[in-house]
Design a protein around this nucleic acid. Structure first.
Length: 413
RNA sequence: GCGGCCGUAGCUCAGUUGGUUAGAGCGCCAGAUUGUGAUUCUGGAUGUCGCCGGUUCAAUUCCGGUCGGCCGCCCCA
């Protein structure tokens, strides 16, 4: 048993699971297309350097969660832990893309993070991803969030989610605020939780979100980012909020919303749910105006998000059932041969046909029933001689004789 | 990375206060007259009781380790 176990934190997607998986991706792709986003893909692994520089050396993702290995040539490579860095790298690598601004992209695929698995948290997981490059305007933020809301709506889970938004300001006021926070918490360092003492070095904004009761008390009087946003950041955030309201996308401002990737600026947002335990974030993202320049590309604004497909699947309603097939029950070699030809004709007419490979009448009927077939086409020597088939409706049990060349019409209606 | 819970047939689970052949429901397989499913009836098979080791006359049951899942923290999708 144990040697047949999949690697920790990985899962097989069996056909029934995969249908729901594909439903999420298909729905997202359809909605993205409605907004003019084009799908693309980047490699699953990149040079380690890309993620280290892009996401930030001190982030948890980079410092302890990456699948990094040396290839046979000695290059340090990393299985992508998120999509944005790879897409930005592709933007820098492919000059033609810089002439298509604003560039609107959709992508989906597997991501890898070495974490302790839980429900909704795997080591290989999958994301849908949306990015707009080259649009510094708040309109892009509004649009990107609106696409997300529409996808969640189409999946039937929007009402089980809350959209939280926040502004992380621009680098200028964020640096100022960060220092103000560090000063404040340093003054209370003896009462801070161990966890938060660590955060003070790496990401002090994160302390605002602490679940520790002692930290919460200190947070009550902590200086707020809202008071430290500069005018440009304030205006930008206001425009985003107004746009969301105008679009009819409900949201809550959450001043404690901080994202764990260093590249975010201005808008940060998450769709969260209370239905998935500790893994409440279903889709999240933000603006990253400095990332592409940081990677050595032309200074280009960016905004986007990623959604966890497995998490979305868990919230989703069952996708629409597949169209029910027609099954064949040919009896004898002559009928089997004839059935092959008829089945192809039916399929060319768009009718799904299931063909079993063996068995008598009883077995064929049982298989048909198990496959969820709506009807069975029965052809034996008698029928063959007359150029007819017995057509049995499996729901009503009714059976009638139909000419072989009339089957398409009989099954289409 | 930290703390905790759990691991018995394909699935959901019961059970053994350590002791001959480990159970149920669902599902699966086979029959109920030769070319008719689903429904009903009858019968059948489920299994290294996660894996390795220890204690014991004896372990699926106790202990340790390990692998995996789950819950909370952390982090995030």
């Amino acid at each position: 048993m144990s040697k047949h176990q999949p690697v920790r934190g990985t899962h097989d997607l069996l056909p029934d699971d995969y249908r729901r998986f594909a439903h999420v991706v298909d729905t997202a792709r359809d909605v993205a297309r409605l907004y003019g986003y084009r799908e693309m893909a980047t490699p699953i692994f990149e040079f380690t350097e890309l993620f280290a520089r892009g996401i930030g050396e001190t982030t948890d993702v980079v410092s302890k969660e990456m699948y990094t290995f040396a290839d046979r040539g000695g290059e340090s490579l990393t299985l992508r832990p998120e999509y944005t860095a790879g897409i930005c790298r592709a933007f820098v690598s492919n000059g033609e893309l810089t002439q298509q601004l604003p560039l609107k992209l959709f992508a989906a695929g597997p991501m890898f993070r070495y974490e302790r698995p839980q429900k909704g948290r795997q080591r290989q997981f999958h994301q849908i991803d949306l990015e707009v490059l080259g649009a510094p305007e708040p309109g892009a933020d509004i649009e990107v969030i609106s696409v997300a809301a529409d996808i969640l709506d189409r999946l039937g889970i929007l009402e089980r989610c809350v959209l939280k938004v926040n502004s992380l300001g621009d680098p200028e006021c964020r640096g100022v605020y960060r220092q103000v926070l560090v000063d404040y918490y340093t003054g209370h360092i003896d009462k801070l939780s161990e966890e938060s003492k660590n955060r003070l070095q790496r990401n002090p904004l994160r302390i605002l979100d602490s679940k520790d009761e002692g930290d919460k008390a200190i947070n009550a009087n902590a200086p707020s980012f809202t008071d430290h946003l500069n005018q440009a950041s304030r205006d930008f955030f206001a425009a985003v909020k107004d746009g969301l309201t105008a679009s009819g996308v409900p949201f809550e401002v959450d001043p404690a919303l901080v994202r764990g990737l260093d590249y975010y600026t201005h808008t940060a947002f998450e769709f969260v749910t209370t239905h998935l335990g500790a893994q409440g974030t279903v889709l999240g993202g933000g603006r990253y105006d400095g990332l592409i320049a940081e990677l050595g590309g032309p200074p280009t604004a960016g905004i986007g998000w990623a959604g966890g497909i497995e998490r979305l699947m868990m919230l989703c309603n069952e996708p629409a059932p597949l169209p029910r097939p027609v099954a064949f029950a040919p009896l004898g070699p002559a009928a089997e041969a004839k059935a092959l030809a008829i089945a192809r004709t039916l399929r060319r007419a768009g009718i799904a046909v299931e063909q079993d490979y063996r068995g008598n009448m009883k077995r064929r009927m049982q298989r048909a029933n198990k496959l969820g077939a709506r009807a069975v086409v029965i052809i034996g020597d008698d029928e063959l001689a007359k150029g007819m088939a017995q057509l049995k409706d499996l729901d009503s049990g009714a059976q009638r004789e139909v000419a072989l060349d009339a089957l398409v019409d009989a099954l289409k209606g």
